[in-house]
Design a protein around this nucleic acid. Sequence first.
DNA 1: TATTAGCACTCGTACTACTAGAGTGCTAAC
DNA 2: GTTAGCACTCTAGTAGTACGAGTGCTAATA
Lengths: 345, 345
Amino acid sequence: MFSGLLDEREKRILCIVIQNYIQTARPIGSENICKNYNLKISSATLRNILANLEKNGYLMHPYTSAGRIPTDKGYRFYVDDLEENKQLSVQEEMLLAAGYKINKYELKEMLMQISQLLSLVSHYTGFVFSVSPEKVIFKHLKLIHLSNKKILAVFITQGGLIEHRLIHLQLPISVKNLKKMCKILNDELIGFTIREVRQEIFNKIKEQGIGYREFLELAEKLGEQIFKIKEELYLEGIPNILSFSEDDKKVESIFRLLEEREMLSYLLKNEFNEKEKVKVFIGNENLYPEMDNWSIVSAAYKTGDCSVGLLGIIGPKRMEYSRIIAEVDYISRMANKLLEQVEEE
Amino acid sequence: MFSGLLDEREKRILCIVIQNYIQTARPIGSENICKNYNLKISSATLRNILANLEKNGYLMHPYTSAGRIPTDKGYRFYVDDLEENKQLSVQEEMLLAAGYKINKYELKEMLMQISQLLSLVSHYTGFVFSVSPEKVIFKHLKLIHLSNKKILAVFITQGGLIEHRLIHLQLPISVKNLKKMCKILNDELIGFTIREVRQEIFNKIKEQGIGYREFLELAEKLGEQIFKIKEELYLEGIPNILSFSEDDKKVESIFRLLEEREMLSYLLKNEFNEKEKVKVFIGNENLYPEMDNWSIVSAAYKTGDCSVGLLGIIGPKRMEYSRIIAEVDYISRMANKLLEQVEEE
DNA sequence: TATTAGCACTCGTACTACTAGAGTGCTAAC
DNA sequence: GTTAGCACTCTAGTAGTACGAGTGCTAATA
């Protein structure tokens, strides 16, 4: 028996060890496996196999006479092996479809609700990480004249995001001029990303040569105040994750990590390109030492303008991957469908 | 020495015990107090005093030969005693004033930033609990015609809250009719609370006798979709609270409690009337058993229309009350000032 | 060559026993 | 009212021990 690939029996046993550990959070030993699973081999043979799996890095044991627990490589194998049959049961799917009404009227609220849904069904912590401003495309701007010095600006992106802001001007502007300005901006800026809009808006107005000072002021303030969307993170079900603190008290560092958003931003930018498949990041695969005992199951979602965000769940490394992957997969597909609808309408 | 009120020396010693416990999280005994604080009495006298304080319910000791720790009543005394000189140092005040730029352009974002600020300076978990819809007063509605069947509705409350929503109609509506509808609603609904608006909007349109079916549809959808604001809770600095889990793992239950919002809603409705003073809720004073080891320091804030919300921090019962009270006080006054500005402008 | 039984060995957990020390409460003297 | 002295109590920490789960190795077996 040389190292390298695993034969069927080894796979089977590896999966048993992992599933057992996921369920019980305890190491399991050869004797116990023999007793509980009807493998037609003795515990001695099993020990040989386990030793081999350990030699190849799939398992480890915390001390000499403890049973085996999976390594990250072990989990990785398990998850990859699983990935094919990640299907929700019909009941679950119906439950998900029927049991939750997502609000389609406001993108932000919708994202929040999706993250709630993720937490609800997974029993871990759900997150939705919104799209980065480089990818969001401007569609339409409305400037509403509340008074000569008070303008309500509302813009809509191609993905259906709506942002509003109250703008206070130093120099008064007339209704007529406001309309003019609005038309110019809509004509000039359509199709730009929000970041570009922010950079260009002042110049566009200047170029037009209609250099009323109030135009320039408004353009400047619009750029500063409204075209300034940022990545947002919706986290729901935080208490769920707390119940898994188990051995170490590193939960705190996880939340610090999440609050910084850097990690999710990194994943979004580097790990998800076009495909919208569910991806699993196990323990140290996340590159952050704080994530040592945790895994992320996530998928990208697309808004109407093809910008991408990230959604998924964070849970302990020993999570029920098969269930969770199926759930995240389902919800991400649901999210994409919902977002398409927002766009169409 | 009969029970009842505390004399100066007793007060002094009570405060020493509490401060010590706040700093070290350990019981302290008579001998130690004598050694470290220059009281001109022996440890035996001290023991008599401590026993007396315990008899009166200000202190307790977890077991026979442990030192004393404060009870809720003890903390309460300490905090009430403190309340007078809750002043921020000049440096701190300047730091707070200079170090943080609150965004004044969007109420929701502002509230979120305030809660971040609370967490940042207190090192505990900051919260801002927004106003209940019964108290928010309608000011202005804009209906923006995007297409015949697609309306962007934006409304502004007297407190400066802006809400928008995209409305999809079954029956097309013309620009002219939309304007008409908008005018009617603005005339009829000004001064109502949002809850009332929601109840009345359909009737108001009906009463006008201009019963085009598209008017009724729009009125109905407006009521359903946009005049539907709810209490919101901004929580920041969750990791901070996790580092205080100490003895028991009840942090989880705290967060479940917070997610439910009921407690804060209760406080807001029952404990804060007109005055905008900082209030401290210690341990079981909160009525929720989960709060046993935690305290809330909070203050009400007012938006322009005199509706009220709650802000503050949640931290371990043994927190640095004097510092925290001063900070919450300062930030709540700052918030009120900011909100006044929003209104004025 | 793969499988198995047998067995010595390892190490962590759980339990017990013991000690040191911190702190109390009481008493009697000042 | 204050203080010194002292017996008493209880915890935290340490050490010792027994148990048992599990391993890894060896030699026999199919």
